[in-house]
Design a binder for these strands. Sequence first.
DNA 1: AATGTTTCTTGATAATTGTCAATCCCAGGA
DNA 2: TCCTGGGATTGACAATTATCAAGAAACATT
Lengths: 231, 231
Amino acid sequence: MRPEDREQIRRLNIFEGMDDENFDELIRASYLQTFPAQMELITEGEPADFLHIVIEGCVELFAQANGRESTMAMVYPVNSFILAAILKDAVYLMSARTNKKSRVLMIPAINVRRIFDTDPAFSKAMVVELSNCYRSVVKDHKNIKLRTSVERLANRLLRYRIAQQTDDITLPYDKKLLASNLGMTPENLSRAFNTLKPYGVRVDGNKISITDVDELANFAKPTPLIDDQSV
Amino acid sequence: MRPEDREQIRRLNIFEGMDDENFDELIRASYLQTFPAQMELITEGEPADFLHIVIEGCVELFAQANGRESTMAMVYPVNSFILAAILKDAVYLMSARTNKKSRVLMIPAINVRRIFDTDPAFSKAMVVELSNCYRSVVKDHKNIKLRTSVERLANRLLRYRIAQQTDDITLPYDKKLLASNLGMTPENLSRAFNTLKPYGVRVDGNKISITDVDELANFAKPTPLIDDQSV
DNA sequence: AATGTTTCTTGATAATTGTCAATCCCAGGA
DNA sequence: TCCTGGGATTGACAATTATCAAGAAACATT
């Protein structure tokens, strides 16, 4: 592992308060792997053997049942995914695959759990991380239950606008994936974009211009309790 | 507080490994309150001041946005709700109201956080509890994203059948609430029950008979990764 | 027992969303 | 440069679900 990677990882919230010896042990036991796009990292239903942390690239968490599939979340650097199954020593409830070429740190679950039991700063940080994961899923669930698909798209565009600090946003992944993440078909996503035309949304491939943010926000009706990722 | 209540609470997973002094402190600081039905206990968006534990009765967690409302979960004795907001010292993302007359233990967040930091058995138990909460929401989210409303009803009936260990189940709360919890309107719930008639489902008020469990399961296609509450 | 209120059902209709198919466009590889 | 494969759009149609309204049924109150 390169020293700059090690430093980057050390600065992660979940590791930064950790005792030095424990961190060294964790890193020694870990694998930092590069995966090509569309590589399945974990499969739902299997035992959780590693804690994964996205160092570079992007990972899609998805679920499958009865011949259907849906994108549950996108994980960006530098974030972990599926912490609960590790802490509970349970099976994964979702699968994960790389969306683009990615570098992923894989920490054996057994080490995570051992250090969790012995390093208070680490266990506290893990709890905060897990709380964030829980609240994020609750917000996603509210989004699906309380909004129509067009409203979900509108709010997502407003979120990208804030994150990218520009009215001219670039979708971070392809529209098929965005549709699945927002709980609709690609066809319906196309239609939703067209529905937002009267609210000033201009579409050119993966470039979206928001020409009247007030109109769009008036339609979308964002609420921090769903849309603010820091809440 | 009655000794039998205290004993019951002590036996909860999250408290049973806790140091005696810490438990005494927690109980001294807490309130055990009886609330009538339809009493709002917490409101989304407000700071999380207490950890609530349902001792008797039933509590509905619900969310509101843009004039709409949806039931997110039902909490039964003896369970806590909305742990993440306490641990993170954040606002509630959902509201809660009693569904029937209920007894609820309210523990000040400040005491929870203090003991969390000092009692390793308690913090470990809290993490397992939080992991369970996270996984439960993930499963609910998968249920909504991957199934039609009729399929959701069918799987819910199969779940009640297992829990009640009988083909003749009693719905645990009214149909309006069940509809909201399953993410549909009451009208659509009525229709969904009718759709399940050819699969052997007989409805008499809040009594439901499952007369052909294989046919129903063949339609419902349950999967432990969504439907098994112990996974 | 009568009355009032709430829940639930049912029908008609509208709206939303999915499915299927055809076509276009773009990116990557030979 | 050409070809191929995959993503995206659009249209037609189907399916699912919501909305509105009326009536029936169940429950609570006087």
